[in-house]
Computed example of a mutant assay.
Amino acid sequence: MTRIVEHRSAIPNGPVIEVHVRRDASADPPVIASVNINVFGQDPDPTAFPARMPVMEAFLQALAYAERAGIAVLWIDDPGGYFPPEKRPAKDVDENEG
């Protein structure tokens, strides 16, 4: 099971998948996300998520990747507050796929 953390201080030492949410006026939609997979500040899989994408898609893909790879923590880096918990999918990723 993947735990979602909101604060960097809650990130353990080990693999973490990160969803970075930012506003980009030149993008469509204007709020986009990038996803990184990190272990102690290193990116072990830089090609896993090469492009920025809509936030909901990034969140769902990050959760699915974390579950497949056995990564226990998903960090939401959203300093602008664009993707608060009430905007996130309420169901498990597996439930949405079926």
Rank of each mutant, 00 (worst) to 15 (best):
G14D: 00
P15N: 03
P15Q: 08
P15R: 10
P15G: 02
P15W: 07
V16E: 02
V16G: 03
I17T: 05
E18N: 01
E18R: 13
V19A: 05
H20V: 08
H20G: 08
H20K: 14
H20L: 14
H20S: 14
V21K: 07
V21N: 08
V21A: 11
V21E: 11
R22I: 08
R22Y: 13
D24F: 10
D24G: 04
A25G: 11
A25I: 13
A25T: 11
S26M: 03
S26R: 07
S26K: 10
A27H: 07
P29K: 01
P29E: 01
P30C: 05
V31S: 06
V31H: 06
V31I: 13
I32N: 09
A33L: 09
S34H: 12
V35K: 06
V35Q: 01
V35N: 00
V35T: 05
N36K: 13
I37D: 02
I37M: 04
N38Y: 00
V39F: 08
V39N: 06
F40S: 11
F40V: 02
G41P: 02
Q42G: 06
Q42N: 12
Q42K: 13
D43V: 04
D43Q: 08
D43G: 02
P44R: 10
P44W: 13
P44I: 04
D45E: 12
P46M: 00
P46E: 07
T47L: 12
A48W: 02
F49M: 00
F49V: 06
P50F: 02
P50E: 02
A51I: 07
A51T: 13
R52D: 14
M53T: 06
P54C: 06
P54A: 11
V55M: 01
V55T: 11
M56F: 15
M56N: 14
E57S: 15
E57Q: 15
L60K: 13
Q61N: 13
L63H: 05
L63T: 03
Y65V: 10
E67P: 09
R68W: 01
R68Y: 03
R68G: 07
A69Q: 13
A69K: 11
A69G: 03
A69C: 01
G70F: 04
G70Y: 05
G70D: 00
G70E: 05
I71D: 00
I71V: 15
I71H: 01
I71P: 05
A72Q: 14
A72G: 14
L74G: 02
L74P: 07
L74W: 02
W75Y: 08
W75Q: 01
W75F: 07
W75K: 00
I76M: 12
D77W: 07
D77V: 11
D77Y: 12
D77F: 08
D78T: 11
D78Q: 03
P79N: 05
P79H: 03
P79R: 09
G80V: 05
G81W: 11
G81N: 09
Y82C: 04
Y82L: 00
Y82W: 11
Y82P: 14
F83G: 10
P84I: 04
P84F: 02
P85K: 00
P85W: 00
E86V: 09
E86I: 10
E86K: 14
E86C: 06
K87D: 14
K87R: 15
R88V: 09
P89F: 09
P89T: 07
A90M: 11
K91D: 15
D92K: 05
V93Q: 08
D94N: 15
